[in-house]
Design a protein around this nucleic acid. Structure first.
Length: 927
RNA sequence: AGGCGCGUAGCUCAGUUGGUUAGAGCGCUACCUUGACAUGGUAGAGGUCACCAGUUCGAAUCUGGUCGUGCCUACCA
């Protein structure tokens, strides 16, 4: 084995071996366990969020697989309608082409080609992470089987009246030319204006204060071209007399009525609102209530259309806005302009300002589907982890709006609906079926709906469509409902909620039992990672490393503004002055686990990943030590347990304690606790103490062959079990080492990933042995403390005396003499029966026992005084605190007896220690 | 406007039904190349647990409030 851990060398080949040998496939034996991967965008690339969630899913999957479950981790990708179509359109644009130049079929062809070309990027990157998904079952949301499921669901919902087509206001993206759902609209506060316009009253009407006009305030002046009324609150005295009167709509040569509606808030703006039913959701409601005309004034591009006054036709909406304000001003109808913060709706993909727009769209009537989905979480069939996300889920589900599922795109599942010349709708799998079902003549022209479905419509079916639904497959019977969904809170509404609704509706089952919601990975300063901020960390760069120049190039890649690029350049150089060194997959994964606490957001800190790379190195070198001492030496299971040292028994005990902690952590989805338990066990117990404790046995002339063999066996045995313990989290390094270690124990197996998880054996958990090794550690640490504080060279062997302890201390000494001598580097260690005879010494207490290092020529008296003084100060503070507490009558009366006793014992100990240290100090001062 | 989080060492974070001397990693200080490992070892320094009040014998932990901060949902033109 190499002297240092080189991840790139060991990670390269193992994945191929695992995949090639089909180890990821369900074993077909045992209780089923299934996780459905949230399908990433097929043309995307792996980001930190994927890395985080997939690492978690892989740990769960490998863990369950090793526990003997029949494990399926279903993999696949999503066609991501809008995102993918945009990418291909951009490519066309670069060649001065548009999608209409190609036509629908050729364009869709092109998208498929792009998918074939780039679709491997993310799956290749996933392999680098070590994910044990079943690639043989890889699915794509637009493959044949899933498309069939999509059509089937659409048709059944339509036939039940749960899908309908309707003309109403939708969120229209004028750049992408499609409707989008409410969830795809992001409302952010931006600086805008309030324009106050005068609308002249006609027929000589006057306001109560004698004006010949009313004033309205608007944030979108251009919409006035579609105004069909003004509205006031019926209780508003200022306007009551004007209700029913007409005003002249400026610039439009039309008259519109003043109506009364409770919706209008008298105190806001001027208390008089212009009503544009075709371009505002609230106005639409009012328009419907009052039977107002709905005048659409926009084109698909959000330019002014031909139904508006000629002067503005063809203008872009923002151009028209300027022109209208200017025209109103010229006409003396602009009263004032106020600065105003307002929420501007923008498309999450395009960033474009969204327009409410009157179109025909398809909707899912969602309320009926939502009811059982709410109940499933209420009654605990589905549980969110952490639980508080259930509130988020409920609050959205209990006020859910119908889901607009049609998109005016070309890339996606085409809506399975056909129209005849009269516009009658026929829904079915294909035109032939439609004709047959509806007894339509063969020559009746039918036209398929041009729209496609929202991407989330197909993802909503993911848990069952991937298993073969609508066929009643074995997989469906075996693996559905699935066990756990691991995902982010950002798609609870988009995906989780819709999956629950659709799955309940079509399978009668819940899709999954648990929803484990992870936090979001942010940069080290808590900023969301985004291209525009130039703070994206690529998991692959953390694995392989990247030099500073390449990193800078990546971060500023798509940066349009030079000054922004400069800023990013600076920030990147600050955080990564020398780029990023290679850390390996295992270290990255372990970092993710260590940060996976309670679903809160994660600020990714490079210090963490370095620490875990070092941990891997530690494992590597511990293994080297073990192999060096066991290879060619024989290490069979001892004939009798008596050959074990106390250290051997201790590490066995600690291992089982750790194993329990791991099981508990996995059961409660606390992978941070799991990773910590393994880390602490391996580094702080196995390496720091056990390996050191093995040396006196292995290298001691006096130890018998049987004892040496027993220790060699335990070294190997615990290492081998630890590798299995850690394998779900550190798949590569554990496999690499296990292949070398297992044969020495006579274990046969092709791969660690097919081995069983370590057996639970609580019988070896041994508090007595734990206490004894704690004693050994305590004495060694006492001596080391004296060495450190007294500046005694580590090379210098010192004599040590123990005194004032009890019989157990004496017994421990005689059991562990060779451990103490070796680990504390002692010249000698002896029990002093008569403390009076103690030579001048530096003293450290361990419980009631004194550990003495005789001063002779090697101790600096003033340093020792200082050291004792420090200890005494600490004890005095402690005693004061304890006395106060115990002296408090209320404490003695109210606290449970065991707590009081514990505090009393603490005080007793502290007081004893104080006396001993003070005696010691006096002794020294006499010199 | 409602809702949900968060505020613990210089930094990133644990702290499980209230009872520890409040912990880890990184960073920092000193010493050490000792036959697994300097991606290491040993010994240390470092915290008024945001603030205020309350409940309690006892609060980082429970309650109320204040401040700061992040997010989600719904929005009055």
């Amino acid at each position: 084995m190499d002297k240092t851990y080189q991840p790139q060398q060991i990670e390269a080949s193992w994945y191929q071996t695992w995949e090639k040998n089909g180890y990821f496939r369900p074993s077909g034996r045992g209780e089923p366990y299934c996780i459905m991967i949230p399908p990433p965008n097929v043309t995307g690339s792996l980001h930190m969020g994927h890395g985080f969630q997939q690492s978690i899913m892989d740990a769960m999957t490998r863990y369950q697989r090793m526990l003997g479950k029949n494990t399926l981790w279903q993999v696949g990708t999503d066609h991501a309608g809008i995102a993918t179509q945009m990418v291909v359109e951009r490519q066309l644009h670069a060649q001065n082409l548009s999608k209409s130049d190609l036509g629908r079929d050729r364009f869709v062809d092109k998208v498929w080609k792009w998918k074939e070309h780039s679709g491997n990027t993310i799956t290749r990157q996933m392999r680098r992470l070590g994910v044990s998904v079943d690639w043989d079952r890889e699915r794509f949301t637009m493959d044949e089987g899933l498309s069939r499921a999509v059509a089937e669901v659409f048709i059944r919902l339509y036939e039940e009246g749960l899908i309908y087509r309707g003309k109403r206001l939708v969120n229209w993206d004028p750049k992408l030319h499609t409707a989008i759902s409410d969830l795809e609209v992001i409302n952010e506060e931006e600086n805008g204006s309030f324009w106050y316009f005068r609308y002249p009253l006609v027929d000589g009407a006057r306001t109560t204060d004698g004006k010949t006009y009313v004033v309205i305030a608007t944030t979108r002046p251009e919409t006035m071209l579609g105004d069909t009324a003004l509205a006031v609150n019926p209780e508003d005295e200022r306007y009551r007399s004007l209700i029913g009167k007409q005003v002249e709509l400026p610039l439009c040569n039309r008259q519109i009525p003043i109506i009364a509606d409770d919706y209008v808030a008298p105190e806001f703006g001027t208390g008089c609102v212009k009503i544009t039913p075709a371009h505002d959701y609230n106005d639409y409601e009012i328009g419907t209530r009052h039977g107002l005309a709905m005048i659409n004034i926009l084109t698909d591009e959000a330019a002014i259309n031909d139904d508006a006054p000629a002067a503005y036709q063809g203008m872009d909406r923002f151009e028209a806005r300027k022109q209208i304000v200017s025209d109103m001003e010229a006409a003396g109808l602009l009263e004032k302009i106020e600065a105003h913060r307002l929420k501007v709706p923008r498309g999450d993909r395009s960033g474009e300002v969204i327009e409410p727009y009157l179109t025909n769209q398809w909707y899912v009537a969602i309320e009926e589907l939502a009811k059982p989905a709410i109940a499933a979480v209420e009654n605990g069939d589905i549980e969110f982890v952490p639980k508080n996300w259930e509130n988020t889920y409920f609050s959205w589900m209990r006020d859910i709006q119908d889901w607009c599922i049609s998109r005016q795109l070309w890339w996606g599942h085409r809506i399975p609906a056909w129209y005849d010349e009269n516009g009658t709708i026929y829904v079915g799998h294909d035109a032939d079926e439609v004709r047959q079902k509806n007894a339509l003549p063969a020559d009746l022209p039918l036209r398929q709906d041009p729209d496609v479905l929202d991407t989330w419509f197909s993802s909503a079916l993911w848990t069952f469509s991937t298993l073969g639904w609508p066929d009643d497959t074995e997989e469906l019977k075996t693996f559905h409902p699935t066990d756990v969904l691991v995902t982010g809170f950002d798609i609870i509404f988009f995906w989780v909620a819709r999956m629950i609704m659709m799955t309940l509706k079509f399978t009668g089952q819940i899709p999954f039992r648990k929803v484990y919601i992870t936090g979001l990975i942010r940069d080290s300063e808590g900023q969301k990672m985004s291209k525009s901020k130039g703070n994206i960390l690529d998991p692959i760069d953390l694995i392989d490393g990247i030099d500073i120049d390449s990193l800078l190039a990546k971060q500023t890649d798509s940066m349009m503004q030079p000054q922004l690029a400069e800023k990013i350049d600076k920030a990147t150089r600050k955080h990564f002055p020398e780029g990023i060194v290679a850390h390996g997959t295992d270290a990255l994964r372990y970092t993710f686990y260590s940060l996976a606490s309670t679903g809160r957001d994660i600020n990714f800190d490079m210090g963490r990943i370095e620490g875990f790379r070092n941990f891997c190195n530690k494992i590597w070198n511990a293994a080297r030590y073990v192999l060096m001492n066991t290879e060619d030496k024989g290490c069979s299971k001892p004939d009798s347990p008596e050959y074990y040292s106390q250290a051997d028994r201790w590490i066995h005990s600690r291992f089982q304690t750790t194993l329990q902690a791991v099981h508990e952590g996995m059961a409660s989805y606390r992978l941070d606790l799991v990773s910590q338990a393994i880390y602490e066990f391996f580094w702080n117990e196995y390496c720091d103490w056990y390996l050191e404790l093995s040396k006196p046995v292995l290298w001691d002339e006096e130890a018998s062959a049987n004892q040496k063999n027993a220790t060699r066996y335990m070294l190997l045995n615990i290492l081998e079990q630890s590798l299995r313990l850690a394998h779900p989290f550190l798949p590569f390094i554990t496999e690499e080492i296990w292949q070398k270690v297992a044969p020495l124990l006579g274990i046969k197996g092709e791969s660690i990933m097919l081995q069983a998880y370590p057996d639970n054996d609580e019988s070896v958990i041994n508090p007595t042995v734990d206490a004894e090794i704690d004693w050994v550690k305590g004495v060694i640490e006492a001596v080391r403390n004296i060495r450190g504080e007294m500046n005694i060279s580590p090379a210098k062997a010192v004599p040590v005396l123990l005194c004032k302890g009890d019989e157990q201390d004496q017994a421990f000494l005689s059991n562990n003499r060779q451990f103490l001598i070796k680990l504390a580097k002692l010249e000698s260690i002896d029990w002093l029966d008569n403390p009076e005879q103690a030579p001048m010494s530096s003293t450290q207490l361990f419980n009631k026992m004194e550990v003495l290092v005789p001063m002779a020529d090697l101790i600096d008296i003033s340093a020792e005084k200082e050291r004792l003084g420090k200890e005494i100060d600490k004890l005095q503070a402690e005693i004061k605190r304890l006395k106060g507490k115990i002296g408090n009558k209320k404490f003695a009366d109210n606290a449970p007896a065991e707590v009081v006793d514990k505090e009393k014992a603490k005080l007793q100990n502290a007081e004893n220690s104080l006396v001993q240290l003070q005696e010691q100090l006096e002794k020294i001062q006499q010199v």
